[in-house]
Design a binder for these strands. Structure first.
Lengths: 246, 246
DNA sequence: AGCTCATGTGAACGGCTTTTACATGAGCCC
DNA sequence: GGGCTCATGTAAAAGCCGTTCACATGAGCT
């Protein structure tokens, strides 16, 4: 039972068969564990059971592996935001907040992707594919903001949707970076990152004149995809978006 | 005129005299240039004209040098935020916004510090001195938020100052990280990061019920340090905080 | 069966981090 | 001034990593 060298070799022969994918998975694990900075190409190779030179058959260099992971991360990110947005159902504000929570959830649950995407220091705009993927993810937030802006209360000037999207993105990104990841998450807060972001977005939307009172849990079995959605309240929930003050 | 080896040696003799400081400065330059990830201990030593082993007389390892820079960064950050806050002069909202701009200005003008502080991936809470320095910087924002919360419009529930501080911090950090640094700054925006953040904060404050109309340029030669500051307007500037919509 | 080419190996180069034994000389005591 | 001592610097070496190159292997096609 003491094969150590030929172990992997015996299992898979000279050729790995699926090395590219194995390397991506190994790297994902290593990044989650030690950060993009601590991750080494050699380690990933070792973990996949191949020599240190093998990865070069699949990635030009270490950076390209990192880029591939970031790319994949942006794709999953986009998918999760899209699912959370759910085309604005059951109503725009609720869906919008769900997108915010999805942002934080992604940062929390996919630390390796998040790290590669936002904290690895790789030049996103130097890689067109990467930039495009990042753009597509942002466009979900942008689309949601468009829909929200279209509901702007009458009378007041309509806020630019792009600006709203950038504002929401910066809030989500700021909360995620500062409070929802790794060590930073240990900073003791008076509320969870999710609650913090939700209150922040609600106050912001109220500042734009949107009604932001809590709706009932939407018991209707199947609400229409995009209901007329008339402004439904005064916009000032009792106690404010942050709940009971002491 | 061809001394290359003894050049530095001749200038400063065997002992450098101020190596610790020289290394910090060299590292600062290198980080500004290539990021905390690209910075190497050996390069800093070379730049200071000493052998690769010399730095170990002044820093336990590469990480300790990085920590020292982050520490120094937090101190300068605190100083700049303190100056921007100016104890709430000429009025709380104006001073508050100035703090926001100072946050962005620091990120933009001190990329090396900002990088070491927020993007180098070093565990801030593993180093008590570093954590304390970071805490002190945040406390400026916290103190400003306290003052702002005290001005909360009567009638509405008073927002928790800590929550406000965390919200503002996340906005500033989000904007700085996404739009005000390096490559990311190249993303084409409909407005400058400063304007983006200012509008964001104004809308947020308005969502809390604060009056946020633009005050006249405060021509009074020497306004009183902490004027009574009665709520001064309806809170809805014509055109909104984002200026003229198209 | 034999050829070819994608895929993997081992060895080697240079660079980095860190440790160790040794060198230097600044500051101090007499 | 002479001599001690210790902080500060050096060279050398070990171990790791990224990357390249010549060579090995064998999967798939003809």
């Amino acid at each position: 039972m003491s094969w150590r060298k030929e172990e992997r070799r015996a299992e898979r022969g000279y050729h790995h068969g699926n090395l590219k994918e194995a390397l991506l998975q190994a790297a994902l694990g290593l990044i989650a564990e030690k950060g993009a900075a601590g991750f080494t190409f050699a380690d990933a190779a070792r973990m996949a059971g191949v020599s240190a030179a093998a990865p070069y058959r699949h990635f030009r260099d270490r950076d390209e592996l990192l880029s591939s992971i970031a790319q994949r991360g942006f794709e999953q990110f986009e998918a999760r935001l899209t699912a959370a947005w759910d085309d604005g159902r059951p109503d725009t504000v609720t869906a919008f907040e769900r997108v915010g929570r999805a942002y934080l959830a992604f940062a929390r649950e996919e630390p390796a992707f998040y790290n590669a995407m936002f904290e690895s220091g790789l030049p996103v705009d130097a890689n067109p594919a990467l930039q495009a993927a990042s753009e597509r993810a942002f466009n979900i937030i942008r689309a949601a903001a468009e829909r929200l802006a279209a509901l702007a209360p009458p009378g007041a000037p309509r806020p630019p949707a792009m600006m709203m999207a950038l504002h929401i993105w910066s809030m989500a990104h700021g909360v995620a970076s500062l409070f929802s990841r790794g060590d930073a998450a240990r900073r003791k807060l008076p509320m969870s990152p999710d609650e913090l972001l939700e209150a922040e977005v609600l106050i912001y939307l109220r500042g734009l004149g949107f009604p932001t009172d809590r709706r009932p849990p939407a018991k209707s079995a199947e609400p229409p995809p995009v209901p007329p959605e008339a402004p439904s309240g005064s916009g000032v929930p009792p106690g404010g978006p942050w709940g009971k003050p002491k």
